[in-house]
Amino acid sequence: MSDESQEQAGGVSIGHLSGGAVAAGDHALAEDRSQRVGSAPAAGDPGVPVPGAATPGGIAIGSMSGGAVASGAGARAVDSSVQLDASARELLTSVRTLQQQLPLLARAEGDGVDAVEGELETVGAELERTGTAGRTRLERLRHLLTGAGTVVSGLASALAVVQAIEQFLG
């Protein structure tokens, strides 16, 4: 193969892709390490027209859900995203809402706010990182929010977290 033809190799043209990992070109690598927790994402429009041929070494994609595309010699792309299902998204949203309200509370020693704040941070980070949260941790947070030992239990947003935990745990 001449240098000119090697330079032009590696174009990608996709009409619809639901998921990921496409590679083209010598030693190109595309990996889809994403975690899809829950139901599959909605399929794209099956009537999406296939785009024209990509320019040499270029990419032309008409609709893509998920990712990691690499084109050209030695190109590398990795998708490591976490996609949450509906109950995990609702739980994460309610956790973040309650976290935003905690600084508004007047704090006193032994009021339980610090314990709740720590559990909310851990649960939120775990949901964002993995798409799920451990049952024991969620049960502890639910106990903290429903027990009489914390002033946080009186907030409506605390009730929303408890309800989201119950829905998430099933």
Rank of each mutant, 00 (worst) to 15 (best):
S2M: 06
S2Q: 09
E4N: 08
Q8H: 11
Q8D: 15
A9F: 14
A9N: 07
G10R: 07
V12W: 12
I14H: 08
G15E: 15
L17P: 11
S18H: 12
G19R: 15
V22C: 11
A24K: 04
A24C: 08
D26M: 15
H27K: 15
L29K: 14
G38S: 13
G38Q: 11
G38E: 13
A40T: 13
A40K: 10
A42W: 00
D45T: 14
G47E: 14
G47V: 13
A54F: 05
T55M: 12
G57D: 05
I59W: 02
I59T: 10
A60K: 05
A60W: 05
I61S: 09
G62N: 15
S65K: 04
G67D: 11
A68W: 05
V69S: 09
S71R: 11
A73R: 12
D79F: 13
D79R: 10
S80E: 12
S81C: 07
Q83L: 10
L84C: 01
L84T: 00
L84D: 03
S87N: 09
T93Q: 09
S94D: 13
R96E: 08
T97I: 07
Q99G: 12
L105K: 01
A106E: 04
R107N: 05
R107P: 08
E109I: 02
V113F: 06
V113D: 06
A115G: 07
L120H: 02
E121G: 11
E121I: 01
T122N: 01
G124K: 01
A125P: 00
E126H: 00
L127G: 04
E128R: 01
R129C: 05
T130Q: 06
T132Y: 04
T136V: 07
T136P: 01
L141D: 04
L141F: 06
H143R: 12
L144W: 02
L145D: 10
T146P: 10
A148N: 08
G149K: 02
T150K: 03
S153A: 09
S153W: 00
G154Y: 08
S157G: 03
L159V: 04
L159C: 00
L159D: 08
V161R: 05
V162M: 03
Q163M: 05
A164H: 07
G170S: 12
